[in-house]
Design a protein around this nucleic acid. Sequence first.
DNA 1: TCACTTTCGTACCACTTGGTACGTAATCTG
DNA 2: CAGATTACGTACCAAGTGGTACGAAAGTGA
Lengths: 178, 178
Amino acid sequence: MQAYWHEGPTEVSINALCARSGVSKPSLYRAFGGEDGLTRAALTAYSQQVLAEVLAILDAPDGFDAALEGLVHYASESPLSDPGCLFVKMRAARERFGPQTQDLIDALGEGAIAAYVAFLDAARARGEWAGRVPTDLAARYLAAQIEAALARRAAGVPPDEVRAVLSLALSVLTAPDR
Amino acid sequence: MQAYWHEGPTEVSINALCARSGVSKPSLYRAFGGEDGLTRAALTAYSQQVLAEVLAILDAPDGFDAALEGLVHYASESPLSDPGCLFVKMRAARERFGPQTQDLIDALGEGAIAAYVAFLDAARARGEWAGRVPTDLAARYLAAQIEAALARRAAGVPPDEVRAVLSLALSVLTAPDR
DNA sequence: TCACTTTCGTACCACTTGGTACGTAATCTG
DNA sequence: CAGATTACGTACCAAGTGGTACGAAAGTGA
């Protein structure tokens, strides 16, 4: 019911969306109750689809380095992030959305940080990661680098370059002396 | 004559800009010839003001590490980048602008890369930087990290966190084994 | 079959967007 | 001071924005 919204990320208007999807405007308003509810519902659906994949990467049984490599691959080369991550785009344009959507954006951002913290804590406990960087900073660093890579990807930077830069950035966490 | 444009970064309309600055719309159109010329002129003025500062940081006589430290300070704590770097914001919304402005955005981006390459080459020649990372990749990495830091700054992330993340990212270049 | 409720979409609302036609006022030239 | 020219701004334009009033169609009960 909300899949057709994904075609238009942030720049599509409600008028164009209705015309393109063949749904009348009042129907859309009855279903979502305004633009804020619509954007919130779209981001909810997207996050449920995507967060699961990221969490699956983090929970991969191949160890810390393999998980990081999976993140690099996902952010830089996955076709799913070809048109750009909806969450990243919406976070960049946070001010344009209504309060409900802004709250959801913030909550998803904090949830991502929490997931990274859990991932790093688990890796440290398993002895797969002996970094000297504090876990909290490493989590925020991870989130910032992934987000930047997805943003660069959406801006049209070639996947190879995105991968090289992201890989170099994450080497801070894997280098043996850090 | 264009200073009042800086108050409104990307989200301000021409109508609001004219109303706020007391300039009639036809006058503005006669001076700049449309929105594309206006945004281009604004970005030109901004770049002349800002690029000089960045180049001065890169040319600082205190050596490679000090220059990097200067970049970190500039991107994360400088009050000039408090409302966010206009170039970064406009580059993120590149598609919204006219062809002239898009060309200028691209040219400024390539110019920044070239400046970083020159900076790294000079540091390598002086023996202040012995990194194993290829110069071209290091330059793009530098540009990506600075841009990401400025974007995070504009998004409301506290300067301390921006600084910590950026400093950690740039440690890839200063670490003795890389 | 009839009355009632509920869903649905046409056609509108006020408002903002970028952009301009044209009359007026100021300035320059003689 | 008169005449030509230039700069200026009111008041408009079509198109698009998010949002809704209201009549018609469809379903539901007896």
